[in-house]
């Protein structure tokens, strides 16, 4: 049970980083931490006590495997995370071009 709780703690650390930090790059790192926490959570859901990797091999029976579905889901969510991260980094670089700073308290032309 405690591992799930630790996952939630990791998620909260990421969320804290996104909400509290002022540097754009640190915000992006926070987002990455959140994603990893969720990925870890999925893998832990799939785990069963002393299970083995869900790989079908010649001459072995399908017994005592961990649940393969969350692992497949995680692969998809990693791809999504990668694309979002790349987009965010690209936008961050462009923002640095325009504002010459990574500090979000100084990037506020939009108001109201």
């Amino acid at each position: 049970m405690s591992v799930y709780f630790l996952c939630l703690v990791l998620f909260s650390i990421g969320l804290y980083c996104v909400l509290r930090k002022r540097n754009i790059i640190k915000i992006i790192i926070g987002i990455a931490i959140m994603e990893y926490a969720i990925n870890l959570f999925f893998i832990l859901i799939a785990y069963r006590w002393q299970g083995r990797a869900p790989i079908m091999a010649q001459g072995r029976e399908i017994l005592g495997m961990v649940d393969p579905i969350p692992q497949a889901l995680i692969l998809t969510s990693i791809v999504i995370g990668l694309s979002v991260l790349a987009l965010l980094v690209g936008i961050a670089l462009r923002i640095f071009d325009k504002y010459n700073t990574f500090d979000i308290t100084k990037i506020k032309r939009l108001k109201g």
């Binding site: 987002i31 923002i95 506020k108 032309r109 939009l110």
Partner: peptide, 9 residues
């Protein structure tokens, strides 16, 4: 860019 970053986060 600013709006997009905010929206994306």
């Amino acid at each position: 860019l600013e709006a997009s970053f905010k929206y994306a986060v």
